[in-house]
Each structure stands twice: as C-alpha cells, then as structure tokens.
Design a protein around this nucleic acid. Structure first.
Length: 294
DNA sequence: CAAGGCTCCTGATAGC
DNA sequence: TGCTATCAGGAGCCTT
C-alpha cells in the first residue's frame, strides 16, 4: 500500500536508474494500466517511443517522468499494488506485468543507469496506471492540478492548511485523506498520525485549534520521514527493485492493523472500526470520540 | 459547490 | 476438500 514515503523511494530509484535514458520500445500488456491515457495503449506507446526521460518528480502519491524538450510527462500512480521495477531484460516477466519500457542503451548494453535493464510497471489489482499528459508551465501534469502539495514539500503552506481545516465541515481523517487539501496521506499513515496526536478520526475539523493542527501536521511529517528513513536505502543496491517497499509496516506501526493489541502509550486494547468501506484503528482511551458525532 | 458514497480490481484468508 | 464471503483501499466520478 504505497503512500508518500514509498512513492518517494520509487521516485529516487527512477531518478537514479531511468533519468537520461531514451525510450526504445513500449509494450502495453493490459489496457486498464493505461486507462487514464484516453487515446489508448497504442497511442501511449507510439508517443513515448524515442523520448528522452528527465528527472522523476513527485507530488503526494503521484509521480511523473518529464520528457526532455517537450511539455509532456509520463504520469504514474501505483494505486494499491503497483510497482515500478528496473529489471534485467532477461528476467522472466512478472505475473502481473502491465507495461514494459525498453531503452535504447539496453540493447547496446552500455550507459550508466543499468545496461540491459528495462522499466516494468507491475500491478496485481490494477488500481494504478501510467499515462501521458501535457504539463503546465511549472512542470505539473495538467490532470493533477487539483492535487495539493504534500507535507514534505517545502512550499506546503501550514497556515493555509489550518485555515482550510477550520473552514471545512468534515472530520479530521476525511480531511487527511482529501488529496486536494493535503496529498500523500493514506489510510495507514492517517491512523498513525492521529494516534500520535491523540485525535479521534471523527473529530470535526471546524474547531481544531492552531496548536492541535500544528501538532497533527508535525506527526504526519514525522511518520512519513520515519518510513522514508527505513525505505530510502533499498534502491541503492545492484539489482534494483524500485518498488517502494519500506519495511516500515511490519515494525513501527502504533495503530494500523493492531486491533486487540495494547496501545503503546496506555496499554488499552486497540480497536478497529469500519469506516468509509475500510478500517480505522485507534486507542479508545487516548483518542476519545467527539461528544457530538457528525 | 461541498460533502459523502460508490466503484473499479485480484488474491489472501476465514468460515462452513 | 472446495466453495463462497469478506477484506484490502486510492481516487475518479456520481449523487445529494
């Protein structure tokens, strides 16, 4: 379940292993993987061929590869189960391989960045995908103009975020997952940040004080940076799996997936509640529900 | 227009 | 043993 830290690890891997390479051939093996490319898989492949890849960028959980010399970018989202793998061309196809990009340097077997390697988009549940889009003057793919900056972005505006929370008539976890308010936070890190902040997921945003929202934002950043610290090293090895597995999930989670286990602060059994077709994990003692439920 | 709910998808797992 | 039900959930899209 890639969230911002995992996607950032992938971005770094792409920066190292794909930037500067020229696309030789694109193979779309599943139409759903390019469904956001409205002109279809053949058009996607045709237009990408021959393009030189620039430095990978990211906003929230979206990442994109700018194409050098053109206001175009390959936009990617990993969805639930997506992976971007840099693999030797000789490696057998993954079961859920959806898109393959070969590079001009692969065939000749030279060049920095991985002679003989190709880029593969692998995605079991096909919630993710790749597509080609025009970019705005600041380099953002036009279709993600509505995605807010993420909390690790230097230009993220903490004060504006607080103001937006106060103006919204919604609850705090909904707001954290609203990518037009703050991007990059998914179900797991939302629960983690709320637990650290001692905030119940159903608390209204309208009466959050400035100190509370500041503390929450700090915990969001802490959780993400911790995950990044764990996952940020894996892409450095010889055989790269640019897949964003942080390893953070198994070890360091205080809330998510811990139903029935003791709260790390007070020892009370953690609870799980169905919430928006998914789950919320929380400590019933540290994270008291609001008096009036919305 | 804001807010909330529905839906896409596949595989692991639980239950009978 | 083998079937069915449930769960995982990002985000576009639709309804209210």
């Amino acid at each position: 379940m890639p969230e911002l830290p995992e996607v950032e690890v992938v971005r770094r891997g792409l920066e190292r292993w794909v930037a500067g390479r020229t696309v030789a051939e694109v193979e779309v093996l599943h139409p759903r993987a390019v469904r956001r490319h409205l002109a279809g898989g053949a058009d996607f492949a045709l237009r990408l061929r021959g393009q030189r890849i620039g430095t990978a960028r990211r906003r929230g959980k979206y990442l994109w590869l700018p194409l050098e010399g053109e206001p175009l970018a390959v936009l990617g989202h990993l969805g639930m189960s997506g992976q971007l793998l840099v693999q030797p061309e000789a490696a057998p196809d993954e079961k859920h391989l959806r898109v393959r990009l070969r590079f001009t340097d692969s065939i000749s077997g030279s060049a920095a960045g991985g002679p003989g390697t190709e880029l593969r988009f692998v995605d079991q549940r096909t919630f993710g995908g790749l597509s080609l889009h025009d970019t705005t003057p600041d380099g953002l793919p036009d279709v993600i103009a509505h995605i807010a900056r993420d909390p690790l972005d230097e230009a993220f505006d903490d004060a504006a975020f607080h103001t937006a929370l106060r103006l919204r008539r919604t609850t705090i976890k909904r707001a954290l997952l609203d990518q037009s308010l703050i991007s990059g936070v998914g179900n797991i890190y939302a629960d983690e940040a709320l637990w650290r902040s001692r905030l119940h997921y159903d608390r209204p945003t309208a009466n959050l004080t400035r100190p509370r929202s500041t503390e929450l934002l700090g915990h969001v950043r802490d959780v993400m940076n911790a995950a990044l610290a764990v996952g940020g090293t894996s892409f450095d090895s010889l055989y790269v799996n640019v897949n964003g597995e942080s390893g953070y999930f198994d070890r360091s989670l205080d809330a998510y997936g811990r139903e029935g286990e003791p709260c790390g602060r007070c020892g009370t059994a953690m609870r799980r509640r169905p919430w928006m077709n998914r789950s919320s994990y929380f400590c019933p003692r540290c994270q008291r529900p609001p008096r009036i439920t919305a």
